[in-house]
Design a protein around this nucleic acid. Structure first.
Lengths: 110, 110
DNA sequence: GACTCACATCGATATATGTCAATATAGAAA
DNA sequence: TTTCTATATTGACATATATCGATGTGAGTC
């Protein structure tokens, strides 16, 4: 914090408002934080690598060295963040990537 | 985990290797995790909004509602992640954004 | 040297979260 | 209904980290 007894002589004037509002920063940060986990990035990569664009959850459990509850947890985190959509077909649940969220993050990085 | 006593009859065959290796996922996740903090995104936004492309640290301290040690911590985290570079000029330290890291993250999202 | 400003580090604390074993739930098939 | 498979939830634990007050460090000024 700047000292209270002296005016800002040596330092620069306050910045203009930045491009990102607090709310925008918060929502983008929530998505980035979801991506900030190697296991989740690999799950996304596995889904994206499929020509069908979807993968059943049991395949994802087998592909990483993680337990089934842990994979289920990561899928839930990404689903609730809007990065994945899921569809039940019989016993299995298929996950797909929601592109819109990734696109908005790319714009933040631009 | 799949049951050990039965072969994978009802389930699908293992996936091919995903696009991201474990190491690639780890390094990208580290960067995403750094971005997964609203305060850090706002700091980046403030720096990016400057025509000069650089901002002295004291301005950043004043622009967010956070204490000076906290801002210093966030700047250090981003600097060590390679997202920022800094230059001391006299008493002040100026921070600039390193574009290369952001570009690589955009590619991961593509 | 003495003082001030800018920034970094330390220590402590609270909170968040990744992980798994155990268990629950839900659908399919017998 | 009973049983099996697929997925989710719970509870517990360990680790990471955001935050701040206090203090240290380094540069400039008097």
């Amino acid at each position: 914090m700047k000292s209270l007894k002296t005016p800002p002589i040596f330092c620069c004037p306050p910045l203009l408002a930045g491009c990102l509002t607090g709310a925008e920063a918060a929502s983008a940060a929530t998505l980035f934080r979801v991506l900030g986990e190697p296991a989740r990035l690999q799950l996304l990569s596995l889904i994206a690598a499929q020509p069908s664009g979807e993968v059943c959850a049991c395949e994802l459990v087998e592909s990483l060295g993680l337990s089934q509850p842990t994979v289920s947890h990561h899928l839930k985190v990404m689903y609730e963040a809007g990065l994945l959509e899921k569809e039940r077909r019989g016993t299995w649940i298929y996950y797909r990537i929601v592109q819109a969220q990734l696109v908005s993050l790319r714009e933040v990085l631009g």
